[in-house]
Design a protein around this nucleic acid. Sequence first.
DNA 1: GCCCGATTGTAAGAGTCTGCAACAAACATT
DNA 2: AATGTTTGTTGCAGACTCTTACAATCGGGC
Lengths: 413, 413
Amino acid sequence: MGIARRDEVGQRSETVRRANLSAIVRELHLSGPLTRSELVAHTGLTRSAIRGLIGELVSADIVSEEKAEPLGLPGRPSPVVKPNPTATAVLALDILVDSSAAALVGLGGVVMEQVRVDRPRGHFGVDEVIAELAELADTVRKRRPDTDPLIGVGVAVVGMVRRADGFVSMAPNLGWRDVALAERLAEVLGTTAPISIANEADLGALAELRRGVSVSAGDVLFISGEVGVGGGLIVGGEALTGSSGYGGEIGHMPINPAGLSCRCGSVGCWETEVGEEALLRRAGRPPGGGRQAVDDLLRDAAAGMPVALLALEEEGQWLGRGLAGLVNVFNPRQIVLGGLIGRIYPFVAELLERELDRLALPGSRDLVRIVPASLGVDAALLGAAELAFEPLLNDPGAWIGPRRAAALLGAGA
Amino acid sequence: MGIARRDEVGQRSETVRRANLSAIVRELHLSGPLTRSELVAHTGLTRSAIRGLIGELVSADIVSEEKAEPLGLPGRPSPVVKPNPTATAVLALDILVDSSAAALVGLGGVVMEQVRVDRPRGHFGVDEVIAELAELADTVRKRRPDTDPLIGVGVAVVGMVRRADGFVSMAPNLGWRDVALAERLAEVLGTTAPISIANEADLGALAELRRGVSVSAGDVLFISGEVGVGGGLIVGGEALTGSSGYGGEIGHMPINPAGLSCRCGSVGCWETEVGEEALLRRAGRPPGGGRQAVDDLLRDAAAGMPVALLALEEEGQWLGRGLAGLVNVFNPRQIVLGGLIGRIYPFVAELLERELDRLALPGSRDLVRIVPASLGVDAALLGAAELAFEPLLNDPGAWIGPRRAAALLGAGA
DNA sequence: GCCCGATTGTAAGAGTCTGCAACAAACATT
DNA sequence: AATGTTTGTTGCAGACTCTTACAATCGGGC
């Protein structure tokens, strides 16, 4: 991220071990429990290498080995290696438009505990929300004290987040500006685990990539539409964050110079044409109705009410127009529609395909597939967990020496 | 690119050697000749490791060592390691709107030979252009027969290119559709070196990143404006190609639903508002005048002619509006303006900054800097060379055993 | 119930790579 | 000419994985 460092590029032989440990843990995290011999096949390492590495992971409590059930196949059965969720737990938090949540998630993506509380829409003080999060976190952690100490904390926020230090530059849906969220959370959470914060749509995209409909896709455009429209971009299997982590604000592409003025200060942004407010306005309904109002509209459309159908058609046209532009710029293989936009997808699916045929460049258009998101409200929460796992996945070795010491200290206290 | 392979991720100790060789060669390619001790400092490797690796590179003729001139400093002088351009030469070709070129470039970016021929604008048969390129290639290669055998061939084309196999899906400025360019070139060039092809703007961005104004920048948006508007995106130090290599077509973002119809079949694409034709139209001049017509317009503007100034102002507003959207989506650190857009930059610089202040999101806007491109017409050609170097930079080891054998064979024949 | 083939874990030795430390070489300064 | 500084050279040790041979555990067939 940011400036490319051409420093310290030299590799040492220790690097190999780190990379191999990382490959094994990542594989287990993504695919779930695997036998040793499956790991041999997946990683290309030899049995002896796997043996040594697994041994180390076992002794650090990151994974455990179990005798395999006989499968009815010839040959010696291979022990099953499974992630040890309690010793590798992360705390995931999210701050959405109208709810907050906390969850404890273990390696492999196992959700051990989860709480979500609704919150009316509107502006909320930073203190208020942080207190709410601290309480949620306390609730889940008290239910599972065996997950201490935590590997990390991941947070999803509806707003623009600078990744390096978890600074929220702007969160219009909450009425926030310039909040040092990571610092504030560190004070109240009572854990020394590192805190990573990112945008809700970015993390929704990550969750779909790891656990949802984008598994095994490398170039994905994820759209999360609620009040505003956010975007998460996966490029070559990795999240596009931009130079400071503010990237992906596709809701603020200028699309209609004759359009309405946007909360961001510009005019005719995409979200003024495809956001929740635009949809309700076109159907002649009052703004601010939230999820309920949109569901009513969709029910009316399903019942054949002309105003509702017309509103959805217009929505679909603007959606298609914006998507075509994004397809031309990113050439993704998959477009994932989440939130509001995922809910209206069934009504506009054919229209969207037609608009892409008409407006997008053939080379890029041909391969792209539009699909609805699969993880629902919890997408960002799961993504926050994935974000928190990242350091462990990249360098499990760091948890092997020191971590044991820390665990023993914790037990002694 | 494409599907993320989670296969064969295991690393062996040979990997380390490969990575270290790669780091050294890449460092020399980017920074030019360096002393051994500078290499030690840059890579973080030890003197003994550097010694072994350099020795291998020398014996493979990829680099050579020379005694250092005494610099007036105490201590034993460190020998200078310099790339050996003739043994590491690539052939770079470009097919632009109104010219074609060929060059022989050696490791380190040394242009050893170069030819460019102009060509009137308009549609040209594939055979015609390929014959032209073959002749240009022949010319430069005959002048430097010592560069045989070539390391690779890189080609820049004004069109949409599928990177995997060098297939040109569309090149409106040439009137091409679905041309298997890599195959066709392989037939006529008479070399077995691998041929890599990419879009002209993408390679312009790469050239600026390696040799121009974006050196040491990690997230860059490069804009190449001629008849159309192309874009090259650098994300985290690497080119964004999209899933098939068609990415970066920022000229075809929809920006004005009430705008003109575009060559691509859509309506109101960005390039219909900021391309050459739009600029001339606004100044009340006939389209198709090419570079000359634009230069006339700029001269008139410099002389204070109101129509010309007004046309440039409108151009700047549309430019700013599009840039603001791209800044919101990509959060780049730098925007590089090339081609037509680079030439008009002096006239719109302040306006652009104002428009960004007004339209882009604060977090992303704050850090971004707009600069004109530095490499001129040859940007794409230099980028094509960089593209062709890539395999050598990534794995110099592959040229160490086999390459020597090939060189000896060539000498014997 | 025993033997055989298949598959996989285990253990020891070898190979490859880099880091470390001591020494030698080449330069400037005094 | 002596001294200090920087850097190449060399030999040894450490870390890691691969190879190879062997033992363990399964199903199937006689």
